[in-house]
Design a protein around this nucleic acid. Structure first.
Lengths: 195, 195
DNA sequence: AGAGAAGCGGACCGATGGTCCGGTTGTCCA
DNA sequence: TGGACAACCGGACCATCGGTCCGCTTCTCT
């Protein structure tokens, strides 16, 4: 795993930026790898050599956007980072994801489309799922944490996010997710959130 | 809207059966319209004339599989049909969907893939969503019923269903969905389901 | 039986993801 | 500084797939 050659690194960046740009400019369905290559000013072969496939490209782009959250969870301050009560960590994490998703709808949609068959194989998704499932399991050992984690993450499905934020903005999504997770995961002791 | 010509009706059936067959025989991704046409013994044009598009074909196939549930909800006996308490109707409906989904994984997956961009436009999905959202709204007027309904239906995402039923069978899915909906939707008065 | 509409099939098209290889460029050592 | 080698580049090329089109066939109705 020697370091990338300088031209290779430059091209990788060019491709990523070009993809971002095209994603925000037009619907995610209309971003073909030809157009990405053209906009990045590289050959199509270069795109595939760097990212392996359409799927790989969007996976890497998502990973890049999610790196901040990842760091915050692994060793950031509470409530996201280790140390806080599991329920707080869960709600905090999902709130971060809501913001991320709302701000990257096109990317999310493209990512889903590209990963269609093997959605659960994506490293970023797996990390998210592992984190959520772990927290859920901690709080509700009786529940099907694996399933619930997948379901909670389904809140950030591209179509759904677009639909929700179109009528109510980011805050509607955040509120809905908070309510959802808050209801699914009991408060350790005491009162629940009254509407 | 005169009745279909007899050869047209025959071909429609042939196409639907061929699609079913290919879906169960191989992965949903590998069912191309060429192969459907070939297996049905008709020309490709016929497939498109009947169903408009790949999306239309899978939508119609799903509608056909769901017609039983639809009838049960519109004017069947409780708890699915009108008359039962909303919570019972909701849990009953979701349980039916769980069984349907588990028994038609390939179709569900193909349908999702085909409807990728406009998942929420599918008539069957809209009907399901409307039903669920209505019931949720009835029980929890304070909640974001629209969002919750989409999320509850996300339990039947193809990838998820396959994953869950692969490790635990239909019953795991049914139990998980029952627990999920049961938790999200409060019991009118009294105790909740322990363990 | 005959006429006209409805339907048929498969050649054809454009787009797209993915591959390949002859030529180019960066890197590293002398 | 120069040269040799590996890594990399680009874009022509390929296969597949959803979707269209139109000349020919078949059903239906009188």
């Amino acid at each position: 795993m020697a370091a990338e050659r300088s031209d290779a690194a430059r091209n990788r960046q060019a491709i990523l930026r070009a993809t971002e740009e095209l994603l925000t400019r037009q619907g995610p369905e209309h971003v073909s790898l030809d157009s990405v290559a053209a906009r990045a000013g590289v050959g199509k072969g270069t795109v595939f050599r760097r990212f392996g496939s359409r799927t790989g490209l969007f996976q890497e782009l998502l990973a890049e956007r999610a790196v901040r959250i990842r760091a915050a969870i692994d060793d950031g301050p509470p409530p996201l980072g280790p140390g806080a009560p599991p329920r707080d960590r869960l709600l905090g994490f999902l709130d971060e994801l809501a913001v991320l998703a709302a701000g990257n709808i096109a990317l999310i949609a493209a990512h889903e489309q590209a990963c269609a068959t093997d959605k659960h194989q994506d490293p970023t998704y797996q990390r998210w799922h592992g984190h959520v499932a772990g927290l859920v399991r901690e709080i509700r050992p009786d529940a099907d944490a694996d399933f619930l984690a997948h379901l909670l993450l389904a809140s950030f499905d591209g179509t759904l996010v677009r639909h929700v934020t179109d009528h109510g903005g980011v805050d509607r999504l955040r509120a809905a997710v908070r309510d959802l997770a808050g209801t699914l995961v009991p408060v350790p002791a005491g009162r629940d959130r009254a509407g």
